[in-house]
Each structure stands twice: as C-alpha cells, then as structure tokens.
C-alpha cells in the first residue's frame, strides 16, 4: 500500500490502473472551482487572490491523468484553463494540445495526420522542442522506431544537453538490440547528471545485458557492470535496484573469476603493454577485473541488505514503506532462487 493517497501535485512514480483512476476521480473537485488568481479583475487579483504555480502543475497533471483514463471532458476543461492562462501559442500548451489530440486519435491514419500537423508547426518554428519531442513520440507510437531514432539524433545534434532525449535514445536503441549505442547514450546522460543513481544502475544493467549476450559471459563487461552498480549504491545507500544488480552481477562473476585465477595478472600486464597504444580507449574496459575476495564480499553485502529491505518492507515498518512492491517481490524471488541453489 502506498504511504500517501495519489497526489496530482507530486504524482506517484508508479501509476497502476487503480492509481490512475483515483487521480482522475479528483477532476470534478478541482474543476468545480475556478483556478487561483483568476476570480477577480486585474488590480484586485494581485491583492486578494495571489496566483499559485502549483495550481498549474495540478491542472497539467489532471489533464494527463484524465487522458489516461479516457475522461476526455475533464481533460478538455483542464486544457482550456491552461490555454486561457498561458495562451494558445505557448510552447508547452501547443505540446499539451498535441497530447490531447493524440489521445483522441482512434486510427493510425488520424495519428499520421497529427504527425503532419507537427511537421507544419515545426516548419513555422523549428525551435519548439516540446513539439519536436511530440513528433518523436508519435513516430514511436506508430511503431516506426528507426525513424524515431533518426529524429532523436537530429534533435540531440541541435541540443546535446537534453538529458531526457539522451535517455529516450538509449531506451530506443536498447529496444532495437543495439546495446553499445544504448550504452553510449547512457554515458552521455551520466556526463550531464553524474549524481543520478538511476543512470548508473541503468548503465550497469546495459553492461550486464551485453555481457550475458555472449557465452561464456564477458568478464570485463561484467566487472564494468559491477562497478556501475557499486557507484549507484555509493550515491544512494538504500537503493533496491542497485543491490539487486550487485547481487545478480556478482553471482555470475564469482564462478568466472574462480575458474581463471590467473586472469587478473594477465590482463593487468596486458594493460601495461597496451597503455601507450590505446590511451584514448575507454578506461573502464581496460581495468582489471576485481579480485574474487572483493566480489564475494560485495555479494554478501548485497544479500544481507536485500534481506533487510525485504524484511522491513513486508513487516510494514515505519520508514521502509517507500519501495515499489513489484521490486521487493522480484528481490525476494532472487534471494529464494539463490537459497535453493545453496541447499
């Protein structure tokens, strides 16, 4: 059970259908009274009904959650209020109207018509990034993933500091099976937001997927993955996904490392030879894999911390209820599987 009722000001991160319904059921109450700052004529409104920015966040979230549940009448009202306040030409409003129309589109043909509308809007104003993103989202929705990737690369050429777009590109590449491109995009995300624990964990996941795509798994990719998960845990000391990844990677790394005890020595000497040759190559790829003892310790740490999280979450202890239920269940399954192997 989430510790808070669903909230439109700070929408929950996991929106189950139940949550979506509860969020959109707030529509009548919010739409029944006029938004703040609008009830009085100009000079009086400054004095007596100060405008609160949270009003507009709530209206925007209400628009999105009403569209999700198919409550188009409420969505229209919320959109109209936002348009009255910010004007129909506001970049964000243009994109929100686009989202509204996308939700109404019944067939792919209607969606394509919308796509051409976006193209026309962009010919008039190519700097509207919100609409450029909508255009990519429509391509994705039409199933034209490779076109979406091309459009995204053009967007990123024009705006290389757009973290959201880099993350989207990484996911699209990963969905196409292009893991090294996905890793490149995630590394760009990391350059822009080096403290994001989720970005580190995502890179760890991608490296893990890359390592396990070959058989036997690639040791250097696995150790890179281990390092990224460890860094995620350095940034967030109770990160369930980080511990999960750490446990998973170290479990597959331990047999590989114990099979080849000389591996560490040989790869480190090789590294010295090649040092001058490929100084430009990515550093993490060249690092020797961690020692067996370290990996074993990390695995133990991950196991004990996962156990602690699962115990405290299931007993509903205060201060431990913020985790995602599905993630806790997955972690419990991972530990159970591990227990069976040992028995």
């Amino acid at each position: 059970m989430p510790p808070h009722p669903p909230n439109l000001l700070t929408p929950p991160q996991t929106i189950t259908p139940q949550t979506a319904l509860l969020l959109s059921q707030k529509a009548p109450r919010i739409l029944s009274s006029p938004p703040s700052g609008s009830s009085l004529p100009w000079p009086l409104s400054l004095l007596f009904s100060p405008e609160n920015p949270s009003t507009w966040t709530i209206h925007e979230n209400l628009l999105l959650s009403s569209l999700r549940t198919g409550d188009d009448a409420s969505a229209r009202k919320a959109l109209d209020r936002l348009t009255t306040r910010f004007g129909a030409d506001n970049e964000r409003i243009v994109a929100l109207r686009g989202i509204y129309e996308e939700a109404q589109a019944k067939t792919d043909k209607e969606l394509e018509a919308l796509f051409h509308r976006y193209e026309k809007l962009l010919r008039d104003d190519p700097t509207n990034f919100a609409v450029r993103k909508r255009r990519i989202a429509v391509l994705k929705s039409l199933g034209r993933t490779s076109d979406a990737i091309t459009a995204l690369t053009v967007l990123l050429e024009n705006s290389p500091t757009d973290v959201e777009a880099w993350a989207e590109a990484s996911e699209l590449y990963a969905s196409q099976g292009a893991l090294s491109q996905a890793i490149f995009c995630m590394e760009e995300v990391l350059v822009l937001v080096p403290n994001a624990w989720s970005a580190h964990a995502q890179l760890g996941t991608l490296h893990y997927l890359q390592a396990t795509s070959s058989s036997p798994p690639n040791i250097s990719s696995l150790s890179t993955s281990l390092r990224y998960f460890s860094r995620a845990l350095e940034l967030n000391d109770s990160y369930l996904r980080g511990f999960y990844g750490l446990k998973l990677v170290s479990k597959s790394l331990i047999p590989l490392l114990s099979d080849s005890p000389t591996n560490t020595a040989s790869s480190s000497s090789k590294r010295k030879d090649n040092k001058d040759k490929d100084r430009d190559a990515a550093d993490d790829e060249d690092l020797p894999p961690p020692s067996l003892a370290t990996v074993k310790k990390l695995e133990e740490l991950a196991t004990s911390r996962l156990g602690e999280i699962i115990r405290n979450y299931s007993s509903g202890r205060k201060g431990w209820t913020g985790y995602d239920e599905a993630e806790v269940i997955a972690a419990r399954e991972l530990l159970d599987r591990d227990g069976q192997v040992e028995r």
């Binding site: 808070h4 009722p5 909230n7 439109l8 000001l9 700070t10 929408p11 929950p12 991160q13 996991t14 929106i15 707030k26 109450r29 919010i30 009274s33 949270s54 009003t55 709530i58 999105l64 569209l67 999700r68 994109a95 989202i99 509204y100 996308e102 939700a103 990034f129 919100a130 993103k133 909508r134 990519i136 989202a137 994705k140 929705s141 973290v163 959201e164 777009a165 993350a167 989207e168 996911e171 995300v189 937001v193 994001a196 624990w197 989720s198 970005a199 964990a201 995502q202 996904r241 995602d324 599905a326």
Partner: peptide
Amino acid sequence: EGEEVLGDVDPYAYLGLEAGREGRRGFWGP
C-alpha cells in the same frame, strides 16, 4: 485544490530509467 504538498521525491525520475515507473514526460505516449 486540496492536494497535499509532499517533500523530496526522486529528483531523477524525469529520466524515466526505472522500469515500470513514470518519467520522460516529453515523450509520453497517451
């Protein structure tokens, strides 16, 4: 509007990197 004000949430949720969670509003598919 009757919505409770909440404290800190994951500041990187907008990256949408956690499976099954919301994020990346700009690319949302209604």
